[in-house]
């Protein structure tokens, strides 16, 4: 489903004229299969977030190829990339990234609104989904009126609403307590099983990483496949 080949990327840091090129991703090659939960685990600064940004099309890689469902996304222009994201990807972020001026219901509705779907159709779909993830009671609440766990559920519902084949989760439990963390991880696993959605989870937390079917470890821009943290 997702195929990454020989991916390289570096950042320029320092003052203009005295910039230094710092390599972040060094020749990454790996695959993510359909219906898999893959976690990429690594310390802060290891390059895991950059990898997610490139896979999601937020960044254009220096070199290498990424293809999703056989389509080479690394060659996309900004507009094409945005359209592809809307149709194929869902996103769950560490700090939820909900729109503060919209209610939980409207936040979940947003991707469908962007897709230009009719209001009645949108509302029916959002209502059903919110019921299935247990958010009906809080649907009219604004994000600042919700707990962290509820916000992340809303965020997951927003990622799910367009029925994307792939969901990228960037530190999905980073802002949650351990009890809520378990709830969210169970929800991810259940969605993976019931809907066959592929999850790519970026985390620094080994415990979260273990939820995945496959764990990739990132260290200094290099990716290795392995089960346990001590294997690095």
């Amino acid at each position: 489903m997702i195929s990454v080949r020989n991916l390289n990327h570096s950042f320029k840091i320092g003052k203009k004229g005295k910039e230094k090129q710092v390599p972040v991703l060094k020749g990454l090659t790996f695959d993510v299969a359909d219906g898999e939960i893959v976690s990429i685990v690594g310390k802060s600064g290891s390059g895991k977030s950059t990898l997610l940004h490139i896979m999601a099309g937020f960044l254009t890689p220096e070199s290498g190829e990424i293809s999703v469902q056989g389509i080479q996304t690394s060659l996309f222009k900004e507009v094409e990339s945005a359209k592809f994201r809307l149709d194929h990807f869902g996103f769950v972020f560490q700090n939820f990234q909900l729109m503060p001026g919209l209610t939980a219901f409207e936040n979940v509705e947003l991707p469908l609104t962007l897709k230009g779907i009719n209001k009645s159709e949108r509302q029916k779909k959002v209502k059903d989904l919110m019921q299935s993830v247990g958010l009906t009671d809080v649907q009219d609440h604004y994000p600042n009126e919700l707990s962290g766990g509820q916000q992340q559920r809303v965020s997951i519902a927003r990622a799910l609403i367009t029925d994307p084949p792939i969901i990228f989760a960037d530190e999905p439990t980073g802002s949650l307590d351990s009890e809520t963390e378990q709830d969210v991880l169970l929800l991810i696993q259940s969605l993976n099983k019931t809907r066959g959605i592929t999850f790519v989870i970026i985390t620094h937390d080994d415990e979260v990483a273990q939820t995945a079917n496959r764990v990739y470890r990132m260290h200094d821009g290099v990716l290795t496949e392995g089960g346990a943290h001590h294997a690095i």
Partner: peptide, 14 residues
């Protein structure tokens, strides 16, 4: 930030 979220979700820059 809101514009960033919209673009991340897939909003067309236009």
């Amino acid at each position: 930030r809101e514009i960033g979220v919209m673009k991340a979700i897939g909003a067309d820059p236009k």
